[in-house]
């Protein structure tokens, strides 16, 4: 069995800590500017669209689509090498954020660009990881 754990994000990274805090409640949080409406993701303290806006936290419905993906068949990472073949993908959430994740619960050959997916939380002690499965 695979005793090595998936890399767990740090909860003390100043910009992204609030996103990971939200995953404890299985919430996919993102930010939107109350002035220029820019969707900001990954989370930051400043709006990248304007200099005077305030970022508001919002919660995604958890659905999106596969923007692009690859099936990893070779990895030397102590955790991921035991997972091959696995699917890495950029997921476009319906509200706008684009996140790098894995598509799971489906054979790699059944993953496609444009496929509708929804978040599937992988539970960990300190937080939860947003993976995706086909709708």
């Amino acid at each position: 069995m695979n005793d090595v754990k998936r890399p767990i994000p740090r909860s003390d990274e100043p910009d992204t800590a609030a996103f990971w805090e939200g995953t404890k409640q299985k919430e996919f949080r993102y930010q939107q500017c109350n002035s220029c409406n820019t969707v900001v993701f990954y989370s930051r303290r400043h709006c990248t669209g304007c200099t005077d806006g305030e970022l508001q936290w919002k919660t995604s419905a958890g659905t999106g689509s596969v923007y692009t993906f690859s099936v990893v068949r070779q990895s030397y990472h102590p955790f991921f090498r035991n997972l091959v073949p696995y699917v890495v993908a950029w997921i476009d959430m319906d509200e706008g954020p684009r996140i790098l994740s894995n598509v799971t619960g489906v054979a790699p050959e059944d993953v496609s660009v444009g496929q509708k997916v929804q978040v599937e939380w992988e539970e960990h002690e300190t937080l939860n990881i947003p993976l995706f499965k086909p709708v």
């Binding site: 990274e13 991921f80 890495v88």
Partner: peptide
Amino acid sequence: GPGMHPAENMDAFAGMT
């Protein structure tokens, strides 16, 4: 593992080679 750059802290869990 995740570094201190915020983008790294978002990406590393996915195992993108």
